[in-house]
Design a protein around this nucleic acid. Structure first.
Length: 910
RNA sequence: GCCGAGAUGGCGGAAUCGGUAGACGCAGCGGAUUCAAAAUCCGCCGCCGAAAGGUGUGAGGGUUCGAGUCCCUCUCUCGGCACCA
């Protein structure tokens, strides 16, 4: 690495004019030099400093899948812009990076290419790290971590044992996708149309013992704290709120009729939010896994077959919810808790064992799903709610049937006439009096199953002893190191076939025991990595006091994909509270004070219909880089052809960049062709961060053209020589009095200072970088116009040009730091843009004497007037009424009303 | 199915608190420069209309002096749904 370059963009001394600025914009050269300079000066190193406000800017760490994709480039550019901007604002900035290194793709790669997951992962990390470096991100690489290293995962094993001892981690049966051919557990992603992705076999549900985190114990706090997150997007808070799904209802029991009960007081418990409709219950539905269903099936082969059918298919909720609703009677009857009426128990494939008690009361008249089910199986429907102006009919479902805000009870005996809340209260009280139920808060949130029957993950630190049971691995035996020399076969975990891994002694009794061979969900690693960045070098503790410095008041900015809006963010919030309760960290409150959820990177797709035996009916996806789009004379696309053969291809939709649609663009080739600054500028300019970003080759070229133009403007200014490359360059307000500026110069200077204000607001408050860039482009257009005339040729003009170009360089620096570094040192020799302060608008320059107001007649734009900035309402009205457009369109009628919106417009109503 | 978001010119997008719709860029068209091309520069660019003007923010309705923005109904697209990360 070169170490002698301090001024990155100096021409080599061999040239005839050694001090002159290079005319051509050469990104490769200036980027190499700028990065070398930052490396040399440790520009991104973050050191705790209590005397300065800190700014911890965190981007979701990548999975090392092989190479960076555009989504990464976008994510990390957003983070870098915010980091650099805040550094220029005087903050002590931390921007770390690491690797979410455990996961299925490493095992898949091992299967496909016969490479070891560990080796594959580490080489991917090495390559992707170089890619990140070539993009010029101000990352403190001394804090780099990878979750697949024992130095990292030993601490989560340690935490696991603490939580296990506290009862916050426990074992119970869980349902998984089972591939009966490959004899392996499948992830939901590996189940395609109900079949295993490799074997093609019909997937079955299977119950196995798993470890669970008691996240439900924190449901109330996780929900309540959402209100303390003003820096989060509203929709993410709402999604989490709905995910936690707190509902207040009534949990009550149907006593089993004597001939079906195994004990005298056996009951079937259900939970409902609609206790007001309890008199409309005509049957009860239980999940296929419910004990009552199992019992009923013992002597009922038909029901047993139905239950077996329910166990076909995967466990993904989306599949369960879109399934055709089916059911079968059990022949078991229970008593209605209030009427004593006999109600039959059905098995329903739509009832989830994991929610509540795995059983629901069915009120077909007032629940849409029950209504459809009752119609299908010809079960009775009993109306118990009536609403004014509505009539109930069995012919079809109407929205109001299920609306708890509408109507009151009927056909419900003593509850008749009561509205929702009063009815629920009365019914709950009566159930409680009978000892058959009570009001209950129920959460949709379920405990988090963390066991995975996979190899490439963190080993669960438990030893199974035939005499002592499950024993957590003692601290001094941690970490339980994952062996890296293994054979991946695709059938179960290799750990389960490695006696050298699982054979061990019980830490309690010393007898022969078996080590747990399941690994942890990779969400476990990503739930606390942001705390470890504060102290990645600590070999004796999971976290230390540096967490308090960097994470105080929450991480200042978290940036990542919207697809993580629920699970990852919820688990991370949960971990912060767990770690607080284990005494590891003080009460940091919420981990992420501000959250920015970036949109996806999408690109057009192209395909041809396949032919021949193999491909008939299949779409053969073509990469956009290999396709020419044909347009008409107005630029509208009319079709597309393949570059290779000139023959037409079909234009598909615009979709998320993916391998399967072959519409990905490799960031590497982009960097090589145009440089990192162009890639960064395009990504920030094409769309606001939280919206999806559409890839456009032409847009990339536009970004490159802009940087080339910026380079030339600065070059021309420097070559003109007014600044003489000296520190003594004249400044407006110092050597040059602001009032000596011409009108054109004053206007341009006002625009400059308005732009400073807007860009700072866009970076800091709005986090909308496309408009910041647009504002600078607009400013440069105005500069160009003034400069191309003779408006800037006098001394004041040169001083203004100097002020403007310096400011523009710094305004853009967070987005395009390499060219910024080079240009700034040309404008101010010896100066380092990376250490400069962000430009601050001068209030005096913002002042305006005269303003333009729009004139409307009946809300339609009819002209404009110029008035003094401090003009009063009466004189504005008078000027508006006298204006040409107003006179013409008022057609002599008197004004009924005149609305004056200060600084904006006048609306005359006639 | 459930939860969440979105829809504005040929395209990406702007309009920040209900106040000039289309900033900025791309594509396109016309011109200058060039032997020519590239690059660059200048101009035009929602739709209808010769113009005056009318009309226009997914569809339909509403509130308002004024609606892309607020309310209601609907359509389509995207994200998540607990073992993809």
């Amino acid at each position: 690495m070169p170490c002698c370059i301090v001024q990155p963009n100096r021409s080599p001394p061999t040239e005839s004019k050694p001090m002159s600025m290079q005319e051509k914009y050469t990104p490769a050269e200036i980027e190499r030099a700028a990065q070398a300079h930052w490396d040399l000066t440790a520009a991104a190193r973050a050191v705790e400093d209590a005397s300065r406000p800190k700014y911890y800017c965190l981007s979701m760490f990548p999975y090392p899948s092989g190479k960076l994709h555009m989504g990464h480039v976008r994510n990390y550019t957003i983070g870098d812009v915010l980091s650099r901007f805040h550094k220029m604002q005087g903050y002590n900035v931390l921007q770390p990076m690491g690797w979410d290194a455990f996961g299925m793709p490493a095992e898949n790669a091992a299967l496909a290419n016969n490479v070891a997951p560990a080796g594959w992962t580490y080489s991917n990390i090495e390559y992707m790290k170089q890619q990140l470096k070539s993009l010029g991100f101000a990352i403190d690489w001394q804090r780099e971590l990878a979750t697949c290293t024992p130095e990292y995962y030993r601490w989560e094993q340690w935490l696991f044992t603490r939580l296990y001892e506290k009862g916050l981690l426990y074992k119970k049966l869980g349902t998984v996708n089972w591939d009966p051919v490959d004899h392996t557990v499948l992830a939901n992603e590996q189940v395609i149309d109900g079949r295993g992705w490799r074997s093609g076999a019909l997937v079955e549900k299977r119950e196995i013992p798993m470890y669970y985190m008691k996240i439900t114990a924190y449901a109330e706090e996780l929900l309540a704290e959402l209100d303390n997150l003003p820096g989060w997007p509203e929709q993410v808070r709402l999604m989490q709120k709905n995910w936690i799904g707190k509902s207040t209802g009534v949990r009550f029991a149907f006593p089993l009729a004597a001939e079906f009960a195994q004990s005298a007081d056996e009951k079937l418990w259900v939970f409902t939010t609609r206790a007001d409709t309890i008199m409309g219950v005509t049957f009860v539905a239980v999940a296929a896994e419910h004990p009552l269903a199992t019992r009923a099936a013992e002597n009922n082969p038909e029901l047993a077959a139905f239950i077996a059918e329910c166990k076909q298919g995967g466990v993904a909720e989306a599949d369960l919810a879109t399934m055709e609703k089916k059911g079968m009677p059990t022949g078991i009857f229970v008593s209605h808790p209030l009427t004593g009426e006999q109600v039959e128990v059905w098995v329903g494939n739509y009832v989830l064992m994991s929610y509540g008690d795995g059983a629901v009361m069915a009120v077909p008249a007032h629940d849409e799903r029950d209504f459809a089910f009752a119609k299908k199986y010809d079960l009775p429907i009993k109306q118990v709610i009536a609403a004014d102006g509505e009539s109930f009919s069995l012919d079809g479902w109407q929205e109001w049937y299920g609306d708890k805000q509408k109507g009151a009870c009927i056909n419900s005996g003593k509850y008749d006439g009561l509205a929702y809340e009063a009815a629920v209260d009365a019914i709950a009280a009566d159930l409680a009096a009978k000892g058959l139920g009570e009001k209950k808060v129920q959460f949709r949130l379920r405990d988090w199953g963390i066991s995975r029957q996979r190899y490439w993950g963190c080993p669960i630190p438990i030893i199974h002893c035939p005499t002592c049971g499950d024993v957590p691995v003692p601290d001094e035996q941690l970490p339980v190191v994952l062996p890296e020399d293994v054979e991946i076969t695709g059938a179960g975990s290799p750990l389960a076939r490695m006696p050298e891994f699982y054979e061990c002694q019980c830490p309690k009794c010393g007898g022969d025991a078996k080590r747990e061979t399941d690994t942890m969900d990779t969400f476990f690693e990503s739930s606390w990595y942001f705390l470890r960045y504060a102290c990645p070098d600590n070999a004796t503790a999971m976290v230390d006091e540096r967490v308090a410095y960097w994470c105080k008041g929450g991480i200042d900015q978290y940036i990542g994909g919207i697809e993580h809006a629920i699970l990852h963010l919820l688990y991370s919030r949960f971990f912060t509270k767990l770690m607080r309760d284990v005494g590891l960290i003080g009460d940091l409150g919420e981990p992420f004070a501000n959250l920015l959820t970036q949109g996806m990177v999408v690109a057009p797709t192209f395909y041809r219909e396949g032919d021949g035996e193999q491909n008939r009916g299949k779409k053969l996806w073509l990469n956009p880089a290999d396709v020419d789009v044909v347009t008409d004379e107005r630029g509208r696309p009319t079709g597309a052809t393949l570059k290779a053969d000139g023959q037409p291809v079909i234009i598909g939709g615009t979709e998320k960049m993916s391998k399967s649609k072959n519409n990905g663009v490799d960031p590497q080739s982009l960097i090589e062709q145009y440089g990192a600054d162009t890639a960064r500028l395009f990504m920030m300019f094409a769309a606001p961060p939280d919206q999806s970003l559409e890839w456009s080759d032409a847009g990339v070229e536009g970004a490159f053209r802009f940087l080339r133009r910026l380079w030339k403007l600065v070059h021309d200014h420097v070559q003109t020589g007014t600044t003489l490359n000296s520190e003594a360059a004249p400044r407006v307000n110092a050597e040059i009095e602001a009032k000596s500026l011409s009108t054109v110069q004053t206007d341009l200077r006002r625009k400059l200072h308005q732009t400073m204000q807007k860009v700072a607001d866009d970076y800091g408050r709005r986090k909308q970088f496309n408009t910041a860039i647009a504002a600078v482009m607009e400013l440069l257009n105005a500069y160009d116009k003034a400069n191309n005339g003779t408006d800037l040729s006098d001394a004041a003009g040169r001083a203004l040009a100097q002020e403007l170009l310096e400011a523009v360089t710094l305004l853009l620096f967070p987005i395009v730091p390499h060219i910024g570094q080079a240009l700034y040192s040309e404008l101010k020799p010896g100066a380092d843009a990376g250490l400069a302060s962000f430009p601050k608008a001068d209030p005096a320059a913002l002042k305006q004497d005269e303003i333009e107001l729009m004139v409307q007649v009946n809300g339609k734009l009819r002209g404009s007037i110029r008035v003094a900035a401090e003009a009063d309402k009466a004189s504005i009205e008078a000027a508006a009424l006298a204006s040409e457009g107003a006179v013409k369109f008022m057609e002599g009628k008197p004004a009924k009303k005149v609305v004056v919106v200060p600084g904006r417009l006048v609306n005359i109503v006639v």
